[in-house]
Every structure is written in structure tokens, then in C-alpha cells.
Design a protein around this nucleic acid. Structure first.
Lengths: 194, 194
DNA sequence: TTTTGATTTAAACAAATGATTAAATCAAAA
DNA sequence: TTTTGATTTAATCATTTGTTTAAATCAAAA
């Protein structure tokens, strides 16, 4: 591998921060995972918090970057929007299972992230959706529509530890489970509109 | 107030543990919240972990205690089951907003809770639901049926910080938002079955 | 009142942990 | 080869935090 020390640290930080969150992460664990000396972490990134910002920014964009472009496109029908969201998110989260929990968790405890959300809050795709719902004669509120879509897509990933530990879903079946849901969610959501 | 020292500590622990989780909670914060000396906490409960067990056990039962009796009752129709779950959970969580996130979070990091889940895993109301779905000619899998209900009910509480910080939901509207959803969820879920 | 055991307090300990320091090493430029 | 600046290391520091200790206080029994 041809990673610089800096890249090794970031890679390790990404792994451990997303797994354990900011507070539960030890700088020593990052150093070990990266195979470097502890002091190097502070030498390159000044502080744990600084390093964390890089990761959370990256993860945040991964999770929320796609939703706005899809929802606000007037040329994409409601059906196509749900399909695109279900497909893209499921694929993303299957290789990044900790992502939703991580972001929601840090949002609760991290001042900095709250600010970031508020800035990027042109999540105002609402008008477009509102129009499309009205045009088709659907009476559901835009907020409920969005909440339902996001719930059905994200919640299985957030609650996976619960469902696996109860035995309701087997670890090895989880991928198939969400891949299958991905295909049903558009129908389910459209059916709620009638 | 007529609380014993022991009760004051438990009350304080409940507040702080559910808000911050096990790791982020400081025994000193519990002591302060309870208005007692730090050493009393160990005098009465031996350790932080011990105190935590009492709280998590309690909260765990609150969150999962109701689901099994409702789902496994053969005399309760599918519609009534969804209604009961939506109503009971919404009411419970409105006065306990941190509960779902807290339990899911601790489930990920707490060995002890995993064991507790596995024991109480006679969450095998599956056969009853499976029958009721089959009888009515619905082809959705039992697992998807349960996952959809739970997602639609719980996710708004888990994602509240996100939706509030984006401005999609105003803090003061949240109660109305979920009270309104509570009434729609049974219809939405039944519509996914067609 | 005296005694006894439970309760409470202030102080301190030990381990964990983020950060810093000073010295060692290395690689490129002169 | 020597020099210079970047990189890396081992050791240490300071703070936080769960827990313990020893003494003080209090309330009930004798």
C-alpha cells in the first residue's frame, strides 16, 4: 500500500469514529489502527476534534448529499424519486451500515454538526414535492411523505442490532432483507397516498 | 418531596443516563443532579455499572414490554394491532423522547443488554401475525410488516434532532406532528398490504 | 445519656486519556 | 558529505473520572 502517514491516520479515524462515535473513540486506538505513533496524530491534525471534523464532514455529505438533488428535481416523478432514494441509500448503507446511527448520534452531542446542518438547510425541496403531490391529488402532507420514505429506508439499518439479537433477522440474511425492501418501498409508499 | 437518598440517586440516574447514555454519563453529574455527595452513589449502588443496570432494565421493559402482548393476541385484528402499537408507543415516547435512541445505542455497546434481549427473545409473536396475514390473503412477509410498523412509529423520535435542526419540523409542532401520524399509520400500513 | 449502626462528607487514589515535549531519524538540498 | 527541515519516537504531563477511605454526623436503641 502507498498511503502516506496522513492518509493512514484518516483512514483509521474513519473506521473507528464511525464505529464508536466521537466520545468513545480513543486517540490511541486510532494510532494503533493506523499503525503509527500516538504523537503523530496530534502532529498532523492538532487535535482529536480536528480530525473528527474531517470525518464527520465527509460522512455527513455522504448521507445527506444525495437527498436534495433527487427530491428537488421537477423532472423526476414521485415514483422515480422514491425508487432513486431507496436504491441509492440502500446501496450506500450496505457498505456503510454504521452511517445513519453515527450521524444521528453525533447530531445530538456535537455543537459543530448542528451548525453544519443549519447551514446546509436549503433542504427546501419541500415546494417541489408539495406541488407534485397536489398535482396528483394526494392529500398527505409533504413532511409525512418524506418522513415515511426516510423511515422505511433508514430504520432497518439503525435497528439492525436489535433485530439481529432478537433473531428476527439473521446476520447473513440482512443484505437480502434490505435489498428486497428496496424494491418494495416505492410501491408501499405510493400505496399510502391513496 | 419525600424521596430517600436511594430514590434521589435513581431518579437522577434515570434522567442523565437516558439523555447521554452510559459512557457519556459522569457519576459526578448524577450526584449533582441528585443533590447528594459523590461517594453516596457507590455506597448505595456499588458501581456506576450497577446503577445503570437498574435503569436500562426499567427502560428496556418500557420499550419492549408492550409489543409482545399486543402482537401475539389472536383475538386482536391486524388493524387493531397497528392502532394499539401506534397509540401506545406514541404516547409513551412523547413523555420519553430519548428512549428509542437510548436503548438502540446501548444495545450496540453493552454486552449485558445483548444478553437480556436474547433471553426475552420469545418475541415470537411471528406465527400469530403470519397466520393473520395469510388468512386475509396478504403476501407481505411478517418481518417486513413488523419492520414497517416499527419504522413508521419510532423513526420520527429517533430522527427528531435532525428534522428540528433542518427546520422541517419545529420543536413546538413535534407533538402535533406525531399525534397526527399516530392516526394515519394504521391506514398507511394497511394500504401497503394491497 | 451513652452506645451503636447507618448515613454522609471531604479528601485522596489510580487508571485512562488527550496533548505536549525533546530528542532521534530520515530524506532531500547544498 | 554536510546541512536543513520534515517526520517519527519514547516519555511525560495534566485533566478527567470511577472508586475508595477514613472520619464526621445523625438517629434510634439501651
Amino acid at each position: 500500500m502507498e498511503l502516506t502517514t496522513e492518509e493512514k491516520i484518516i483512514t483509521a479515524a474513519r473506521t473507528i469514529f464511525t464505529q464508536k462515535g466521537f466520545n468513545a473513540t480513543r486517540t490511541r486506538d486510532i494510532a494503533d489502527e493506523a499503525g503509527i505513533n500516538l504523537a503523530l496524530l496530534n502532529y498532523y491534525f492538532r487535535s482529536k476534534k480536528n480530525l473528527f471534523r474531517i470525518i464527520i464532514e465527509e460522512k455527513f455529505d455522504e448521507l445527506f448529499g444525495m437527498i436534495e438533488p433527487i427530491l428537488s428535481d421537477v423532472n423526476v416523478s414521485l415514483e422515480e424519486k422514491i425508487e432513486a432514494l431507496a436504491a441509492n441509500y440502500t446501496n450506500l448503507l450496505l457498505v456503510n451500515e454504521d452511517l445513519p446511527f453515527f450521524v444521528l448520534s453525533e447530531l445530538k452531542s456535537n455543537e459543530y454538526i448542528l451548525e453544519k446542518v443549519k447551514k446546509n438547510t436549503r433542504m427546501l425541496s419541500q415546494p417541489v414535492i408539495e406541488n407534485q403531490l397536489k398535482e396528483r391529488g394526494f392529500t398527505i402532507s409533504t413532511l409525512n411523505f418524506i418522513m415515511n420514505i426516510v423511515s422505511l429506508i433508514l430504520f432497518p439499518f439503525i435497528s439492525k442490532p436489535l433485530f439481529v439479537s432478537t433473531g428476527l433477522v439473521k446476520e447473513e440474511d440482512f443484505t437480502n432483507f434490505v435489498m428486497n425492501r428496496k424494491q418494495h418501498i416505492p410501491t408501499w409508499v405510493m400505496n399510502t397516498l391513496k
